[in-house]
Design a protein around this nucleic acid. Structure first.
Lengths: 245, 245
DNA sequence: CAGTGGTCTAGACCACGGC
DNA sequence: CCGTGGTCTAGACCACTGG
């Protein structure tokens, strides 16, 4: 990978690359400190610094005696909480179901190529979903999934798990971008969401990457009167114990 | 100050407290490593670990020879970029001005007390602003500022700098919360923003705290067709807080 | 109990950059 | 130049916890 001037950064980058590439999936045991010390011919302190940085970024978990393991991919980290619909419904105590309105392998096309840095003839799986709480539609989602990056998605029927949750569970991401707009619902959107035509809706476009490779784009439409987004940040806050989570 | 079990965390917390309390404002020189070594009776490595964590969380800057200084309060850290209107206009090459529509000291009231953890009779400075690019209104902002936390705001006329930029420049924040909604503009909002009644708008509510004390709430209304919000994240890289979480 | 990480020490050499 | 931070070493003791 990138040649880092510092040894601890180099160690960190090499482990990070193995995790992000999928070579070391979640749960994989990472070499213990003394093995890395031997491998890099450095002191334990240097290895410790590299591993501590990986802990801070949430990529690995460390426990005494048990060693270090690759962490499961996390939710977008308290940054802009795009709800996992099933989880959110469970917390709110309402029923959740979803419907797949459309599913097809499509080429990206010129408009998509403008939004995403990929050629217009690149093949994507396109899925349209409606998310429903207690018989009320709460969101409509049009999603593109990069078949080159996630070929396994072709074997998934999405009969139990919606595409968003399926991807979150399986594919770690290293970069994400949101665009949030307000639009008036057109006739078709209003029909799908059971709202009045012209009602204000939130349109959230979210694109995620893994190590520079485009993974997926979701364009989610929320009725303005039923949903809103919340983000919380605390840069240097919290007198809290160091290792929680 | 919380008694931390580790020395490097205790050092970090004590410096952090001085910065967040305002005792060490931005630009203040921090004791050099060997001074902290003497003060805490520890090795240089331990001091270095504490200061590195403060660098990672963006609270201080370190330069060789020049020493370490308290960093200026940063923009919301590439998390959800709420534009600074003047900066954004300058980048886009359009003219910027703003108008103060209303300014008064008011009590919070019951509705405000529900949103903010303060008593209903707490005194706030209330300011309403319209932001204008090239004669086109792009946002309407209603802001409450906690007079107990920022008494100096009473002496500011906001004739050159709008309230949001003024606060960003002066008051560091340690916590923030956003709520983002889509609403249809009512008649008065439409008039202020020169849009059609019923047009979809983004309503962004943003509340910020400093060390547990409420600072300000801004409720900003953007015409949906003129503005949108962008957020970018990269979990394993970038600014991270190695301690909490 | 023994292996693992968490913390810390008392040095060292080097790179940068203000004076 | 020389004070500063950046990195690294080769140890040490301790705390936790799985087998």
């Amino acid at each position: 990978m990138a040649g880092a001037p510092n040894l601890h950064q180099r160690i960190r980058e090499e482990i990070e690359a193995r995790i992000l590439s999928g070579e070391w999936p979640p749960g994989t045991r990472i070499p213990v400190e003394h093995e890395l010390v031997a491998q890099y011919g450095c002191s334990r302190m240097t290895v410790s610094k590299a591993l501590s940085a990986l802990v801070a970024s949430g990529l690995i978990l460390r426990r005494r005696r048990a060693g270090s393991v690759v962490a499961a991919p996390t939710q977008p980290r308290a940054v802009l909480e795009i709800p996992d619909f099933a989880q959110e419904a469970a917390r709110a105590g309402v029923s959740y179901r979803f419907e797949i309105l459309h599913r097809a392998v499509e080429r990206l096309g010129p408009a998509g190529a403008r939004r995403i840095a990929l050629p217009a003839d690149h093949e994507m799986l396109s899925v349209a979903t409606v998310h429903i709480y207690d018989s009320v539609p709460v969101a409509h989602e049009r999603r593109l999934i990069n078949l080159a990056a996630v070929p396994a998605v072709l074997n998934e029927a999405f009969d139990r798990i919606p595409p968003g949750s399926w991807l979150l569970d399986r594919v770690p991401w290293s970069g994400a971008e949101h665009a949030i707009r307000a639009i008036n619902a057109d006739a078709e959107q209003a029909r799908r969401l059971a709202i009045a035509p012209g009602a204000a809706c939130l349109l959230v476009e979210r694109r995620t990457w893994q190590a520079g490779n485009f993974i997926t784009e979701a364009r989610t439409l929320y009725p303005g009167d039923r949903q809103y987004l919340v983000g919380r940040f605390s840069p240097p806050e919290g007198h809290h114990d160091p290792r929680s989570r």
